[in-house]
Every structure is written in structure tokens, then in C-alpha cells.
Design a protein around this nucleic acid. Sequence first.
DNA 1: TGAGACAGCTGGTCGGCCCAGGTGATGTGA
DNA 2: TCACATCACCTGGGCCGACCAGCTGTCTCA
Lengths: 237, 237
Amino acid sequence: MQIGVIEVPTRKALLVQKIEEQILSGQLRVGDSLPSERQLQEETHISKTMIHAALVELEQKGFLEITPRRGAVVANYAESGTMETLNARIRLNGGNMTKKQARSFMEARIAIEGTALRLLARQHTDEDLAYLEAIIARADALLERDIPDDNALADTLFCYHRGICLRSGNEFFPLLLNEFRPIIMGFWLRSIAVFGAASNVHLAKRYLELIRAGDAEGAFHRLERSVNEYLSCLNEQ
Amino acid sequence: MQIGVIEVPTRKALLVQKIEEQILSGQLRVGDSLPSERQLQEETHISKTMIHAALVELEQKGFLEITPRRGAVVANYAESGTMETLNARIRLNGGNMTKKQARSFMEARIAIEGTALRLLARQHTDEDLAYLEAIIARADALLERDIPDDNALADTLFCYHRGICLRSGNEFFPLLLNEFRPIIMGFWLRSIAVFGAASNVHLAKRYLELIRAGDAEGAFHRLERSVNEYLSCLNEQ
DNA sequence: TGAGACAGCTGGTCGGCCCAGGTGATGTGA
DNA sequence: TCACATCACCTGGGCCGACCAGCTGTCTCA
């Protein structure tokens, strides 16, 4: 067994996590007021500087709404949240998405990556193809190893699909994928576990062929098909 | 002419902006080390606490990578960046997007909001419609005011379109819109300036009609059309 | 020559300062 | 009795200088 690196969390990170848990578990409800920074300081024995920094971080993540000189209330994070908020929710659930989240994720994937696939299939240079081929080569190298490294393969698949977005010419799509990163990594790990490593790499190659052939609709429908396969596989469990 | 609120920037914000500029202008390159917090303290005459807070903020934005007791280096923000990074880049450019960014933004809008429109048109409850109608009513109230408040209207339009994503049933879409928020707000302000306040509210009502009628493709194509109108209008300038 | 101590560096944290603005109790005048 | 002005108190926001713990390169001593 592997233990891996042990990192000491900072007090601030622990406080952020604690409050996140209280919010997500429902102990703190939307609209509830948090104790004042000075009260939290007394409770937790953490300095006001760090308390303040933690609350600001939670506000950026969309969990809190801080009004100067009024206090902090739990925000409606379903409405005001960002991807950070969602990542935190999934992380707290042990990294597992609910069925609805999984379906939402797949819809978003088709919307974003499907558009990128179409764009790239319609218009691409040899350089674009070489860029993607290089990543596929990395995946092939991983397949041939004696000891499988699912994490490395998932990372490579992530880079490949981000590469499609990157090369589609749209400046927003790759950034959106970065925002999703923890979720997408979890998805690929699961996909590798369910369909096998080779099958996933094979599918990646198929996308490249369709892009090279300029078959925008074919690439799009291939993505739709694989998404549906994954979702139906999820429903069986 | 309006002068508007004048806000005194904090030292921390100024420092963040300064470092962002240095990174985006290329004076600080990806991989470069930053001076230590103490060195920055001496240079800038700002306390170490604030220096530290500024660096943490830049790390959250994806510009820096901080390792405890080792220092901070400039991160590869083009690859690892998030929407935050993009927001910062646009803000630094005076809030103006490049043509390519504008086109990318519109593509992303069609991909995400277009999908949400389709979903909502196909499947919606009376409650969904009432939710959107309430926001439209807010917009109407703003239109009837003597003194136009473009910012408030842009905010209402943002809430309306986020509402479409929210009610589409997809958990990801509204979060993505929140991520874009500063960019979208800039877009609506410009759209109000170009097409007028009433025209924008009218268009919002049109979407609601199409949703109510269950005309998924009609709603989608209406969005495509308005996007193309905006882009061609941008090209004329 | 090599192992260990140590000094000097790093980011992380602390507690306290003052500020501006919001809130609610108190007191005052009509 | 009630409306209104006053004021003490509390809030978050920004900032400071000191201290802590841990890494690293150097320097010493066996």
C-alpha cells in the first residue's frame, strides 16, 4: 500500500473546510448569519486576520455573502456559486456526483466540448493535429507500461480534450475545462475503470480521425453517443 | 456627464494589479521567481501581512504558484488559468475584449445558454415561467424610471439569463454564468448602449414567449440571431 | 572527507491598532 | 405618548510589526 505525501493543512484551510461542511450538511442554512469575526476568533482561537481571510475565500467560492459592517450570511450557493462551489460539494460527497450532477456534467460536456469538436473539425491546421497526436502518443506510452497508472492516463485524457478546446480557437473553452478539472479527472478515472484504459484511448483516436476528415457532425455525434453510453452504464448500477 | 462613485483603492489591490500587469505585459515570465515577501515589503513599504494576502489572491487567480518556505513563481496562466485569469486580462485592457475574445464569448454563450434555452423550452413548469416573469417585471420597472440606471438593468438581464440556466435543470450552467459574470455584465452594458434598453428587455420577453410555446429550436435560433447581430455590429466599428 | 549543527532564509500566523459605517437603546422635545 | 435626534457599541476592512515553524545552504569539527 501507498501512503503518499502527508501535507499539514493550514488553520485557514481547516476553518474554510469546517464552515463548508456546516453549510453543505445543512447545519448552516441559506440566509443564516455567521457569528461575527471577533466571535469566531474567540471560539476557534484563530487570529482575526486568518478568520477574515477564510471568510473572504468562502465568499469568493460563493458560499457566503459578506456585507461590510453587517456580517456574513450563507449565500444561495446554487444560484450564486461558481464551479469552486460545486467542486467543494462533490469533494465533500467523497468525490461522487449525484445522478443529476452527472447528467448535468454530460450536458455541459456536449455543449462545450461538442462545440469545440465541431469548430476544430471544420477548421484545423497540421499543427493542431500534431498537437493532439503528441498527446495520444503519451497515452499510448502509458498503455504499454507494465504497471498501469490510471491517474496519469486520466490526466493525459484531460489534456487531450482540453487540447481540442484549446485548438478550437475559442479562448473560453479551455479555461472552462480548467475550472471543471477536478470533476473531469474523476469522470475519466471512472470511465477508465468501467470501459478500460485501451477503450478510452481508442475513442480519443477516433475523435482525431473525425477531426482530420473534417466530419464535424460525425465527431459531435460520436461524443453524444459515448456520453449516452456512460450515462446508461451509470443507471445500471 | 456622470463622474460616479470614486473609490480609494487599497494598497493590497494596487499591489495585486501591479504584479498582474508585470505578468501580463511579459516583464515577469512564466517560471520566474518573485522576490520574497520581505523583499517586497522593503520595496513597497507595505506590511508583510498585506504582501502575503496579495500573493495569495494572485495564487487563487491562477497567476502564481506559492510553495511554503520556498517562494512564489509565475504560473503558466494560459494553460492553468481559469475564468478569473481571463477576467483580470480583460480588466487590464480597460474592460475591452479583443475581437477574438468577443467571438469566443459569443460561441460560449450559444453553447451554454443555447443548450439551456432548448432544455427549458422542452420542459418547464409554471413555476419556472413565473420565476422569469418576476425578473422581467423588475426590468420593466427599471425602464419606466425617469433616470435610467444601465448598471441595474444589466444586472437584471444577467439575472434573467442566469435564471434560464438555473431553471433548465442543469446544475452546471448557472455556475458557469456566475464565473463569467464580470464579462457578461460588460456585454450587457454594451448591448444596452448599442441597441437601447427597451430593445434588450423586449428580446428577453421574446425568449420567454418561445419557452412558453415550447419552441426549443426557435428559441435557440433567436439567440443565434441576436449574437450575430451583436457581432456584426461590433465589426462595423 | 563526511556528518551534523547552525544561521539565515522562507511563507504562515498572530493579536492588536484605527477607521467608517450600521444598529439599537436612550433621552429629549413636541 | 410618540417621533426624532443622539450616542455608545458593534460590525467588517485595512493595516502593522512581531513571532513561529520548517527548509536549505554553509560551516564546523571529528
